[in-house]
Simulated scan of single mutants.
Amino acid sequence: MSNLPALKQDIAKMGGEFGKALPGHITADKFVRTTQTAIALTRNIDKVRNPQSLLAACSKAASDGLILDGREAALVIDNNGDVQYRPMMRGLLKLAYNSGALKSLVVEAVRENDLFDYQPTRSAEPIIHKIDLKSARGEVYAVYALAMFKDGGIVHEVMTVEDVNRIRDRSDAWRAHKAGKIKSTPWATDWSEMARKTVFRRLSKYLPASSDRDDRLAQAAERIDEDYTFEIDAEPANGNAQAQVQPAAKKRGGAAAALKDVTPPKQEPAKGKAQSKPQPAQDDDPPDYDPETGEIIEYDGPDQRPGDDI
């Protein structure tokens, strides 16, 4: 970890800039100290090739108002040696409660042996979920998010495992993991966490904004999984090197976009060969979805935007 002291020093130098983005209840000094501890504990921190990506990741966390303590948010090193920022479920729930309008908020997985009664037309109590912790609960078959407001209103979202996996299957990181080209992705190691974040993202569109800054909740909830699920390549079983999978180009601007140009170079056609006809861009997303975590999904089923991965 020869570059660890230098990375910590870079973080300290950025304290003033972080302070400008942080909400009032988080001091720049606290954010810097927590982040310095976080990078020391981050797996593969010695493989960081681009220190600017660390500063960009930390700037995102500060802008969202989340501490990089592994509970509210965390850092991940991708297969290119860049640092990526991952908002966690606890951090998203904190931002939701910051509005002061919520009485309760539940984001939970439903298992085969739970008692689960879902009636969307029963407006006063659309979901009844009882868990018997004395017996095996069985496999997950659905996830849901339900928020009750202090004024008596209720909003909820329910997704089946199939609904969640349709979103997972659009993830470049998941496809790369299935192909054996990257070592891990949260969709493989922490499916329940990713599923809960997925259904929460749908719900968060209907939640009031954080009181300290209007866009913090939506901003954090829109962080797409391509921004943080690529990790160091796995070693192939036969010892042969595998090609690295490049992350998809970011769909939004911002610090990360300014730090690294991921546009592939234009290929000139070989002499004497006809150039293939350009193909139209594929965009099966609903035209009124505002794409990383920035509005939450409005559409269910296979017509969701590919960028709606958590």
Rank of each mutant, 00 (worst) to 15 (best):
P126G: 01
T121N: 10
N50S: 10
K181D: 09
D46F: 06
Q84V: 03
Q119M: 08
V155A: 13
L95A: 03
G91K: 04
V110Q: 05
W174R: 12
G153Q: 11
V107M: 06
T185W: 00
A145F: 12
A173F: 00
N79T: 11
A188E: 15
A179H: 10
A96C: 03
G65M: 01
V76M: 02
L75S: 13
V83H: 12
P87K: 05
D172N: 14
S53E: 04
K183W: 14
V83A: 12
Q119N: 13
N165T: 09
D114V: 00
L68P: 02
L54S: 14
Q52T: 11
G152R: 15
Y118F: 11
L133G: 10
P186V: 14
N165V: 05
R137E: 09
E108A: 05
K178Q: 15
R168Q: 14
A145T: 10
A145H: 12
R168N: 14
G81S: 05
I167E: 15
H156W: 05
E108V: 03
K178N: 15
L92N: 02
W187E: 06
K181V: 07
V158F: 11
D82S: 10
I154W: 05
K150T: 06
Q84A: 10
N50M: 08
W174I: 02
A109S: 15
Y97D: 03
P126I: 01
G180I: 04
A124Q: 12
M88Q: 11
A173I: 00
S184M: 02
A179V: 01
L115K: 07
D78N: 12
N165W: 12
D117N: 13
L102M: 12
L55H: 00
T121I: 14
M159C: 05
Y141H: 06
Y144I: 00
A101Y: 08
D82E: 14
V110W: 02
V76S: 14
L66A: 02
D172G: 10
N98A: 15
L68R: 00
L102D: 08
S59V: 02
R86I: 07
N80D: 11
K94Y: 12
Y144T: 01
P87M: 08
I154F: 09
R137W: 01
Q119V: 14
V143R: 09
C58A: 15
A147L: 07
E108R: 15
A145G: 04
Q52G: 11
A179R: 07
A57K: 03
P51W: 01
E157V: 10
L146T: 09
I77G: 01
I127W: 06
I131W: 07
A145M: 13
A96S: 07
E108Y: 04
V161I: 08
R175H: 04
D151W: 13
L68D: 05
